[in-house]
Amino acid sequence: MSDPVPGTKGGAGTAGGGRLAARGLTLAYEDRTVVHELDLAIPDGKVTVIVGPNACGKSTTLRALGRLLRPAGGAVLLDGRELARLPTKRIARAIGLLPQTPVAPEAITVADLVSRGRQPHQAWWKQWSEEDERAVVEAMERTDVAALADRSVDELSGGQRQRVWIAMALAQETDLLLLDEPTTYLDIAHQVEVLDLVRRLNRVRGRTVVVVLHDLNQAARYADHLVAMKEGRIVAEGPPGAIVTADLVREVFGLDAVVVPDPVTGSPLVVPGAPWRADTGAEATVTG
């Protein structure tokens, strides 16, 4: 049934040897430092979710992992080599990235957009190989957008459009897939649909996935490895069951909450308690 997949190989067996890692990573916009000397190893073959409050530097970190942002200090390493020193096309064969709000050209069709994910595997004289065709067909079937192939992306619903973008990133056939808040602007059914798809890609294809989310419950539900960030630093990382506690929620989000087991999955479920009061102040330093 399942075809051989030349694009996905390596990584899965080597324990602990993450292909993608950040060492002492400092990220800044102009003169404002957003992420401070971050060390992070992305475990291979797992779903890593980065969570944190708004402006904690999680999206910035993801963009740096996908070389969209140059480090102000430290480095991102792919297979032990500095990302900034690798040819961008070579990176594109290893790391796929879906930005937070991708923009499609006007009136582009679904199949046309998905096929552009093949760019790093193509050349001027090799615009459409059988390999490209196989990858695009597979990506569209995996994301259930094959039936929409000839439709214009403009006409699609938010959930459909997000699946098309994910299909494009899949067609790139990279071992690593980075998704920046893929559930933004989607209603809850579509959010679940997209996150289920992410998990399926990981479980069925063994792809290493890194997702940025701001919903802690979704993060706890879908992550194998959870990274909680605050003010440009990692506060805690590990399996959600081990690290998501009321203390962590208070420290990271400044929110009093009760953590109970999710009735469906057993993963930690955060139920907000009394909201943080103005007299204590959202900016108050957390003693911990």
């Binding site: 963009r63 996908g66 070389r67 969209l68 961008t88 096309k89 070579r90 990176i91 594109a92 064969r93 790391i95 796929g96 990235l97 879906l98 930005p99 709000t101 991708p102 923009v103 552009r116 994910g117 760019q119 790093p120 494009m168 990133a169 790139q172």
Partner: peptide, 9 residues
């Protein structure tokens, strides 16, 4: 868009 194009190498 810029980010997508860069991600595609």
């Amino acid at each position: 868009d810029d980010s997508t194009a860069t991600a595609l190498g």
